Simulated scan of single mutants.
Amino acid sequence: MNQRGPAMILQQIRLHPFGGATDRPVPFSPGLNVVLGPNEAGKSTLVNALRSVLFRTTQLTATRFRSEMQTYVPVTGGDTVRVTLLFAVNGQAYTLEKCWGASKASRLCLPGGGELTGPEKVEKELAGLLHFGEGTYNYVLITYQSHLAGTVDELRKNPLASTEALTSLLQRSIFQSDGVSIERLRALVRAREEVYFGRWDRKKGAPEDGRDFDKPWEKGVGTILERWYRLRETEHAYRAAFEYEKKIDEFAARTYSLQQEVDAVAGYVNAHAPFVADARKRSEVAARLEKINAEIPKLREVQQQWPRNEEQVKRLHDEVAALREQYRALLAEQRQTEESLGQQALRDTFAKAQREHDRVAEEERRLAALRNIGDQDLKRLKDAESALKSLQIKVESQ
């Protein structure tokens, strides 16, 4: 059995850029590492980056670059792809960096602080650190599941050339992975798969039976579905908050519009305040004028009746004077009758005189009432005519 040096332990690979990764470091843990993920997650890109940094020279012709590396140039643009690999051999740290495209470069940082540049020196040193050739890595250690059948056929064709190396490699792999068997690894992968993909339909990319967050699965929910439910709840809350914020914006816009209308009305009122005050005065004058116009017919009626009242007053005055004369005559007659007639005749005469006296008093009261009404009405008529003329002058001047 051939004796080979210490194994190469991968510590980290960095794609910057390479394929869909612009700057993506991927660390490796001690022991067995399993890369698990759905389609288009970047598993194949990671394997191709590892193959390229270990075995592909940076001195590629334009034709080889287009056929082998152009597919890893970022779609966002650029003309260079770059991969950096950190690994250890016998506890000594190495850093390998390769660039393909416009910036062709190969660099290997050695444990003692030295550095190798140039593709030939780097490839030669790297070949001494690798235990197997490129074919063993490509078809056995870094192979696709679809290539396993071809790998087995190749091993069958060349059993002597590969059995010893492969046996040694598998023995070291079992020791370095703490003796984990393939069956145990498969069981662990399935258990981990259930933890992540429980109740998740990977073909549809949705929960099993289409059960959304409003009717979620309660048992057997994996990490992916749990995160998906949280995402859906967050999206729902976000949409509700967005609608609420939209209503608030509409209310604010309406409030602002109403405030502008209020400001416009206030400005209009302030600008037309003198006209408003003038209109208020005109309204007050018009009310007073209307009241006076309503009183004028009554005053004119009083004015028309004044001559008749004055004649009546004069007539009543004459009647009162005549009644007084009659009263005095009756008193004289009473005295005469008292002497000539008996007590009864005197009483009758006195009663008659008393009635005449009451009549005179009544006529005097009527006369006094007619005089008071006439004087007041005449004065009110004159005052109303004067106020009417004054108000008409004010109205015509405004």
Rank of each mutant, 00 (worst) to 15 (best):
Y244K: 15
Y244N: 14
D263L: 14
E120S: 14
K382E: 09
D23R: 09
V83C: 13
Y238E: 14
Q343H: 05
A62K: 10
A88M: 05
T45M: 04
R14D: 06
A271E: 14
D383I: 11
P207G: 07
T95D: 00
T84N: 12
V302T: 03
V302P: 02
L388F: 07
G222A: 00
S283Y: 08
A161S: 08
F87M: 07
K104V: 12
L141H: 06
R308I: 01
R14P: 06
G31M: 05
Q336R: 12
V180H: 04
L46P: 04
R355E: 10
G5T: 00
E245G: 15
D318Y: 04
A322R: 05
G118P: 10
E194A: 12
S103E: 13
A273H: 07
M1W: 05
G220E: 02
S390K: 15
V221P: 01
D377F: 01
Y268N: 09
H236N: 09
A332L: 05
I13V: 09
T71L: 01
N39Q: 14
I13G: 05
E134L: 09
E193R: 15
G198P: 08
D263N: 15
V221D: 00
L341G: 14
G114H: 02
A287M: 11
A149C: 02
G20L: 08
H272C: 09
E68R: 04
A279D: 11
Y144E: 13
L50G: 02
V35K: 01
V180F: 02
K203N: 07
T349P: 05
N48M: 02
V89H: 04
Y244I: 01
T80V: 14
S106H: 06
R347D: 04
P30H: 05
D375N: 10
L316A: 06
L388T: 15
H147L: 05
V285L: 14
E295L: 13
Q344M: 09
G267F: 01
R230P: 00
A237I: 00
V302L: 10
V75C: 00
S103F: 08
V35W: 02
Q344H: 12
A149Y: 04
V47I: 15
A49K: 04
V35E: 00
V75H: 03
R280G: 13
A273R: 10
P307L: 09
K157T: 08
A62V: 15
R365S: 05
E125L: 07
L289G: 02
A127H: 07
R315P: 01
Q398W: 06
R308C: 03
T76D: 09
Y139I: 10
A322L: 03
A384F: 02
E261G: 07
N372A: 14
L185G: 13
R232L: 00
F132M: 11
A361S: 12
V89K: 09
A88F: 01
L15T: 11
N138G: 08
R4H: 04
Q259E: 13
L50R: 02
K157Q: 13
V152F: 12
E120A: 15
P6L: 06
P25K: 04
Q354P: 02
V269M: 08
Q343R: 07
Q11W: 02
S162N: 15
V195H: 13
N39W: 02
G210K: 06
A266L: 14
F275R: 15
D318E: 07
G133R: 12
T84G: 11
R190H: 06
G128D: 11
H147C: 03
R300K: 13
C109F: 09
L330R: 11
A294Q: 14
G374P: 04
E250M: 13
L258G: 06
G198W: 03
K104N: 03
L85W: 11
